[in-house]
Design a protein around this nucleic acid. Structure first.
Length: 493
RNA sequence: CGGGGCGUAGUUCAGCCCGGUUAGAAUGCCUGGUUUGGGACCAGGAGGUCGUUGGUUCGAAUCCAGCCGCCCCGACCA
């Protein structure tokens, strides 16, 4: 039925690409590793962005914008951070082109236009922001400083994948400054909660909150909090991170404040971000072999109405009047609705098309329905069709949209729960990875060496140490050394 | 960066091995008509410097060499 979509079973990554490309979310571009986000995909991102932006503002943050370029000397100021990103930076070295004397009609970099100091295209903005914060912070009265920015960043990844890892991507990055360590930790934890709230309740993607092992920690952070989601192929995807940065950046950029006791102290910092990668998670958690399945709360169109014209002008006048009325009711009820009354395409084509695009609810209304004061309502998540009365129709649809939202979450959660296993030996661990890929809870002795070794042997990494983790005596699956808790392993994107 | 694949109409691809009419098909697009409850049909039409540069040849989409680009797998990656 699904024309040209590779099935998940056949080839999971082709299926994923098909959905992104044929679902109209994005397209490849002429730039290596960079994609074009098409209007449908961008609307989805805008919807996500709007919700997050509201949440950030409700938690006291304001937006600002910092430059795309970071002078190399600033970039390298915080050594660990710089080192962590050094291998994937795009660098501006010149500011001018000129006609190439050897190739008529072509341009070349003007060697005389070399910059005194190279500019790093931001892979993240801590450096430029902390350099700025130095100017803004003098007193405890200037704190906390709670700023977010919506921006693009560039990370020159060796291998890219649509939405999941592109060389340039869109994201938000929050950068906050605090007077005390405790306050900064609370902030980092609070923003993790905001992310979890958003991802679970708007994207319908269940997540596990936790902290990263030192190996997986953000370069320059004291502690990295994260939310981890499980994809349908059993691989994990980091959906968001929030970092407690300690005083590392304050020290690197010399950002001090005077406290109430009139003594100087370095400020405490956090940073946190989510990106267009979330769209990759959304696709891989919910969609099926017929196409995308988008959760109602962020879907570009929540409902598509497809009128089926009758035989006579009279019939069609009645139908059109009814459709117009429904559109108006939907609008009043705040439902994002798309009307597909293109009479050049047959219904079956439209059904398939809208299923591919993942519109949560399809409403079909023809003369037969009109006679009975009903419409055929089909939900994308379960593919179930039903006749619904046109009385209080927008209320019925609103209720249905909520039901779909919850059902999608429940379904994803059930999938995740059935794919979290416990492994008590290395053999069991490997077997689990091969036979039932997913999250695996296992004991780990807490050393980086063991973590590396397990990664080398199995490609699985520690996704996180879950928050409020149950304490349990056990033995490390690799070394047999004592362990006080299980940590969450998986192969990851 | 290693391995594999690919580059021909908007898209998906055939043609290439074995050089030789005016480079094809499907789909999409445009015009007109008939249709419309699960991917309609008829008729007409537009659309190509065959990735690029050079070489071999009377003649290159086809053979040879270089270059460029993209995709997939791996390595890498917060």
């Amino acid at each position: 039925m699904s024309k040209g979509i590779t099935s998940r079973k056949e080839n999971y990554s082709e299926w994923y690409n098909d959905l992104v490309l044929k679902g109209g979310l994005a397209d490849y571009s002429a730039v290596r590793g960079c994609m074009v986000i098409k209007p449908y995909g961008y609307t989805l991102w805008e919807n996500m962005r709007d919700v997050l932006d509201r949440m950030f503002k409700e938690t006291g943050h304001v937006n600002a914008y910092f430059p795309l370029f970071v002078p190399k000397s600033l970039f390298e100021a915080e050594e660990k951070n710089a080192e962590g990103f050094a291998k994937e930076c795009a660098i501006v070295t010149h500011y001018r082109l000129k006609a190439d004397p050897e190739n008529p009609g072509k341009l070349m970099v003007d060697p005389e236009a070399k910059l005194e100091e190279e500019l790093v295209v931001r892979p993240t903005s801590e450096a430029i922001i902390w350099n700025t914060y130095k100017k803004w912070i003098q007193s405890y009265r200037d704190l906390p400083l709670l700023i977010n920015q919506w921006a693009n960043v560039v990370r020159w990844e060796m291998r890219t994948r649509l939405f999941l890892r592109t060389a340039e991507f869109l994201w938000q990055e929050g950068h906050t400054a605090h007077a005390t360590k405790q306050e900064a930790i609370i902030e980092a934890e609070k923003m993790l909660e905001v992310y979890a709230d958003f991802v679970e309740n708007f994207m319908a993607v269940p997540v596990i909150k936790g902290i990263k092992s030192p190996n997986e920690r953000f370069a320059g952070a004291e502690e990295t909090y994260c939310i981890e989601a499980l994809m349908q192929d059993g691989k994990a995807l980091q959906a968001g991170t929030s970092h407690f940065l300690g005083q590392n950046f304050a020290k690197a950029f010399d950002v001090k404040f005077v406290n109430k006791e009139n003594t100087e102290e370095f400020v405490w910092a956090t940073s946190w971000g989510v990106s267009t990668r979330l769209i990759g998670a959304l696709i891989m958690v919910h969609s099926d072999d017929e196409g995308l399945i988008l959760p109602p709360r962020i879907a570009p169109h929540q409902v598509v109405i497809i009128p089926l014209p009758g035989k006579t002008e009279e019939d069609n006048a009645r139908l059109n009047a009814k459709v117009k009325e429904l559109l108006s009711d939907f609008k009043t009820a705040g439902i994002r609705v798309l009307l597909d009354d293109d009479d050049m395409k047959r219904p079956g084509f439209k059904f398939a098309e809208h299923e591919l695009k993942g519109i949560p609810v399809r409403v079909v209304i023809g003369m037969r329905d009109l006679q009975n004061n009903v419409a055929e309502v089909a939900r994308r998540d379960t593919k179930v069709k039903a006749s619904l009365s046109l009385d209080n129709f927008s209320e019925s649809i609103s209720t249905l949209l909520e039901e779909i939202q919850l059902n999608m979450y429940d379904k994803a959660k059930t999938f995740r729960e059935t794919n979290i296993t416990k492994a008590d030996s290395f053999e069991a661990f490997q077997k689990s990875l091969d036979e039932q890929p997913g999250f695996i809870l296992a004991h780990w002795d807490g050393t980086a060496e063991t973590e590396d070794k397990i990664k080398e042997l199995t490609k699985a990494t520690i996704r996180c140490i879950p928050l409020n983790n149950e304490q349990e005596e056990g033995k490390c699956i690799l070394t047999g050394n004592p362990s006080s808790q299980r940590v969450l392993f998986a192969r990851a994107y």
